[in-house]
Design a protein around this nucleic acid. Structure first.
Length: 134
DNA sequence: GCCAACGTTGGC
DNA sequence: GCCAACGTTGGC
C-alpha cells in the first residue's frame, strides 16, 4: 500500500467540508507530476489531508475509494481525478512548522517541493506524522 | 501583498 | 531543443 499527501486550500475545500460530504472526487490537479501521482494511487491507499495557505497543517487521514478516471470538470483527457473518503481527524493537527522541525521529515516533498499538490510519502514518514498528530 | 520557486509556453 | 518570459502556488 502507498501513502500520499494532498493539499487543499481550506476556503476552497476544507477538511470540515470533506467530512460533511463523506466522499469527494479530487479535482483541480493541473500539474503533470501531481497528475502522475494521482494515477499511481490504488484503492485503499491512505492519504494525509493538508490545509495550505490557511492553517498550514495536516488535519486528517483520507483513503482512496476509487482509482483514477477522467476529470469530470474538463474534457481535456490529460487530467484525472480519484475519489477520496475521510477516515479520521488528527487529534492535534500537525503544522508545517513542526514537520520542518522534525529531522526525519525534512526530505518530504511538502518541505522540499512546496508547490506540488499531490505527493507520495514513505510509510515511515506517514507514520511519523500520525504519531505527531495523536 | 510580496516574492521565491518552479512548471509551462512559445519564439527562435 | 533551448531558453526567456510568463503564470501559478504557497509560505511568510
Amino acid at each position: 500500500m502507498n501513502h500520499w499527501l494532498v493539499k487543499s486550500e481550506p476556503f476552497k475545500y476544507s477538511w470540515e467540508k470533506f467530512n460533511e460530504d463523506g466522499r469527494t472526487f479530487w479535482d483541480g490537479v493541473r500539474n503533470y507530476q501531481a497528475r502522475n501521482n494521482l494515477k499511481t494511487m490504488k484503492e485503499g491507499d491512505l492519504v494525509l489531508f493538508y490545509h495550505s495557505n490557511e492553517g498550514k497543517n495536516v488535519v486528517g487521514i483520507a483513503k482512496v475509494v476509487r482509482e483514477f478516471y477522467q476529470d469530470p470538470t474538463t474534457d481535456d483527457a490529460n487530467w484525472v481525478v480519484v475519489d477520496l473518503s475521510p477516515v479520521e481527524s488528527l487529534k492535534n493537527p500537525v503544522s508545517l512548522e513542526q514537520i520542518k522541525a522534525e529531522p526525519s521529515l525534512t526530505d518530504i516533498s511538502l518541505v522540499r517541493q512546496g508547490r506540488l499538490s499531490v505527493m507520495p510519502l514513505k510509510a515511515t514518514e506517514f507514520d511519523k506524522i500520525l504519531e505527531m498528530g495523536s
